[in-house]
C-alpha cells in the first residue's frame, strides 16, 4: 500500500484556507446584522412580507452571484476574490484597482506575483472605501447631501463611471488594441439595438464575445508577434 506524501501547503493553498474561513465568518456576521437589529428594536417582521420581498430580488441576484463568482474569480486572483466578494463593489472599485495595479507592476494576473499585487490593491481599496464611508457617515452626515448634490459637484459624481473606465481602459486598449476593437464594436452594436441593457448586464455578453473573438484571432494568427509581447 502506498502512503501519500503530505506536500507542504503552497501560498495559494493557504490563501484558499484563509479565504474560506473568512468568507464563512463574514456570512455569519452579515446574517447576524438583521438579527441584531430585530433583537435591539424588539421586533420581528412577518415572514410573509420578507419572503415577498425576497421573491423579487432572489431570482435575479442569486443568479448574478453565481455568474459573478465564475467570471470574476480568474480576474481577481485567489486572495483578491475572497476579499472582493466580502467587501463588494467589485466592478466599480475592486477590479479596476486590481487591473490598474497589475498593469503598473507589469505582472500577469495568473502569476503568484500578480496574485500578491492584486490582493494588496484590493485590500487597500477596501480599507480606503470603508474609511471614506465611515468618516462620511459619522462626521459629515449632515452636510453630505448638500455636498454631493451641489450643482457644482453633482456632474462629477454622475460621471464617475466614464471617468473610471476611461482612465482604466486607455492603457489597456492601447496595449491590447488587437484584442479590443472587435468586442467593443460588438458591444456598441448591442447598444444600438438595446440601449437600455445597462453596463452591468452588458458585461456578460461582452466578456463572452471578447474571449470568443480573441480565440478566433488567436487561431487565425492575428495575435502573433506584437500582441504577444504586450500581453500580461
Amino acid at each position: 500500500m502506498s502512503k501519500k506524501n503530505k506536500q507542504p501547503k503552497t501560498y495559494f493553498d493557504k490563501v484558499h484556507s484563509w479565504g474560506r474561513i473568512s468568507t464563512i465568518s463574514a456570512l455569519c456576521v452579515l446574517l447576524m446584522f438583521p438579527m441584531a437589529i430585530c433583537l435591539y428594536l424588539g421586533v420581528f417582521p412577518e415572514a410573509e412580507y420578507v419572503f415577498k420581498g425576497l421573491l423579487k430580488v432572489i431570482p435575479l441576484y442569486w443568479t448574478v452571484a453565481v455568474v459573478e463568482v465564475i467570471f470574476y474569480t480568474p480576474m481577481l486572483g485567489a486572495g483578491g476574490t475572497y476579499l472582493s466578494f466580502v467587501t463588494g463593489n467589485i466592478v466599480n472599485l475592486k477590479l479596476p484597482c486590481a487591473i490598474s495595479a497589475m498593469q503598473n507592476a507589469k505582472v500577469k494576473a495568473t502569476s503568484e506575483e500578480g496574485d500578491v499585487i492584486s490582493t494588496i490593491a484590493i485590500a487597500t481599496s477596501a480599507i480606503v472605501t470603508t474609511a471614506v464611508l465611515a468618516v462620511g457617515v459619522i462626521a459629515f452626515a449632515p452636510f453630505l447631501d448638500t455636498f454631493t448634490n451641489s450643482p457644482l459637484l453633482m456632474p462629477a459624481f454622475k460621471q464617475v463611471i466614464p471617468a473610471l473606465f476611461g482612465a482604466l481602459g486607455a492603457g489597456y486598449f492601447v496595449a491590447h488594441w488587437k484584442l479590443s476593437f472587435a468586442p467593443i464594436l460588438f458591444m456598441l452594436l448591442i447598444l444600438v439595438f438595446v440601449p437600455t441593457i445597462g453596463a452591468s448586464t452588458l458585461i456578460f455578453p461582452g466578456i463572452i464575445a471578447s474571449v470568443l473573438f480573441a480565440f478566433i484571432m488567436y487561431k487565425v494568427g492575428f495575435l502573433d508577434k506584437k500582441e504577444k509581447k504586450a500581453k500580461k
Binding site: G169, Y172, L179, G206, S210, A214, Y218
Partner: peptide
C-alpha cells in the same frame, strides 16, 4: 489571452455604455 480578453470585456461594457 484569456485574462486580457476578460478584462477587455469588462472595461469595454462600461466604455460602450458611456
Amino acid at each position: 489571452y484569456v485574462t486580457p480578453a476578460l478584462f477587455i470585456g469588462l472595461i469595454g461594457a462600461f466604455v460602450a455604455n458611456s
